[in-house]
Amino acid sequence: MASIISISGLTKRYASGHVALHGVDLEIEEGEIFALLGPNGAGKTTLISIICGNVTGTEGSVTVAGHDIVRDYRGSRRAIGLVPQELHTDAFEKVMSTVRFSRGLFGKPRDDALIEKILRDLSLWDKRDAKIMELSGGMKRRVMIAKALSHEPRVLFLDEPTAGVDVELRRDMWALVRQLRETGVTIILTTHYIEEAEEMADRVGVISGGKLILVEEKTALMRKLGKKTLTVMLADPLPAVPAELAQWDVTIKGDGHELEYVFDTQAERTGVSSLLRQLGDLGIAYKDLNTRQSSLEDIFVGLVHRDADAAEAVA
């Protein structure tokens, strides 16, 4: 599939000297839902802000729908709808007029039929004449999405769309994002909820300390998630894996006191019972058993820590 966004070597150094992004390279494919995952302060918002035009990048280049974001900012920005993390709204404006304003601001001629459709899809039509200040937080978030969609963007950025949003609204938001994808809109969302990335994304990128440390298909990540680790605490330490256990993917840990077996929970035969039978047949006694499932969260935390350690080692 063709890339709709190409980012290469993107670096951002703020005036304070803080480096928010270190040479990020990323291709976003047209029509996908891409989740950018990372802890607070990892650079997610900076990355989005540069692509959208709110922050100026220091080095590197970005193209959106083939338009360079600096040289041809009109072309790139016309293709983008942005829903920022904070609820920035004009309190005194009415819902309908603020959405109409956004469409005009992006250079499009007035189209009230389209705006009606957007407001209806977002369950905002009944509130079209309400002042924004009269709306609840969730409704304000919807207004911001309506504003971002008003000029029919090809790419929609949702910066932490469900931060501080109740469970019901979060479900609605997910349904909305899927519905948008059906219409061919590419969606990039940032989140620090793993659950959200798992639920929604086609691909997941993990960003930490301004570096993109992993970009992978969600299904590939889920396969890693499907793995479980069985740890067998041995009564007596083993110097090496006995040849009889070769058919299982077993390793020795903890100075020979532990046997570790990684297996796929999705597989027809996990091999757990046969391994334990074989241990019994070999007369290897064990004190305890423990199984543990690795989650996306583990992978994520592991990646982020490894990265932080590496950064410290360099410093």
Binding site: C52, R77, I80, L82, P84, E86, H88, L105, G107, K147
Partner: peptide, 10 residues
């Protein structure tokens, strides 16, 4: 904060 929209507009 609504300036975000102006800055991100073409």
């Amino acid at each position: 904060g609504t300036i975000y929209e102006l800055l991100s507009a073409p």
